[in-house]
Simulated assay, not measured.
Amino acid sequence: MKLTSVPIGMDLFRTTKVLSQAFEARLVEAGGGLPTWLTLLSVKSQASANQRELAGMIGIQGATLTHHLNAMEKQGLLTRRRDPANRRVHRVELTDAGEALFLRLRDVAVAFDKRLRAGIPDDQVAQVAAMLATFRANVGD
């Protein structure tokens, strides 16, 4: 079977790769990176979240999250403490330095999104968002 056009999945993959690399570069310039941004965003979104909840929000395995949290804790961006109600659970909270980095990276994310949407009417952005949701649903479990 000969393909006459690029399959949409391949085109989407290439586009995602270009966007991811550009976004990562902007985050690194601001002193973070994608894992740091996703972790800070998740902690900020759910006050005093535990590690299992954070891993689920980010979409990574617990061991991977632990690696990121260890590094971020060493950098003074967050603290972990045991939950008094369940000593097996660690609660994660941002420090002042973590809050400051969150704000810097949030500004980068907002600026990147604004650049990405430049020249595209809101109704088309909504159509793309709906189409992406359909793609995820079509390949999901």
Score class of each variant (00 low, 15 high):
R14H: 13
V128H: 02
G31K: 01
A55S: 11
A97D: 14
L38D: 05
M131W: 13
A25W: 02
A47Y: 11
T64H: 09
L65H: 03
D107I: 01
V125T: 04
T66A: 15
N70P: 00
N50S: 01
R88I: 00
R52G: 01
R104M: 10
R136Q: 10
V125R: 00
T15Y: 03
R52L: 02
V108E: 04
E53Y: 03
L38H: 09
K44I: 01
Q51K: 15
A30N: 05
A49I: 07
G31T: 04
L12W: 05
R26T: 08
N50P: 06
L69T: 12
R115D: 14
G31C: 02
I58W: 08
R115L: 08
E99G: 06
D122M: 12
H90E: 09
D96P: 00
A30D: 02
A100W: 03
Q21W: 03
T66R: 14
H68Q: 12
S42F: 10
Q21T: 07
V18E: 09
N70C: 10
E24Y: 03
G32W: 04
L78K: 07
Q127L: 05
R26E: 14
I120Y: 04
T36L: 04
L77R: 10
T16C: 03
K74V: 07
H67W: 12
L40V: 03
S42C: 04
L54M: 07
V18M: 14
F102G: 00
L78Y: 13
A126D: 09
E53A: 11
A118K: 12
V92H: 07
L103H: 13
R82G: 03
T36Y: 00
K74D: 15
A22G: 11
G62L: 05
L105D: 00
L101Q: 02
D113C: 01
L105K: 06
P121D: 15
A30W: 06
P121N: 08
D96Y: 09
L77F: 12
L34S: 15
K44E: 09
A30F: 07
Q124N: 11
V125M: 03
M72T: 10
T16Q: 00
G31R: 03
V89C: 04
K17N: 03
I120V: 15
F102V: 02
G56M: 09
W37P: 05
A111Y: 02
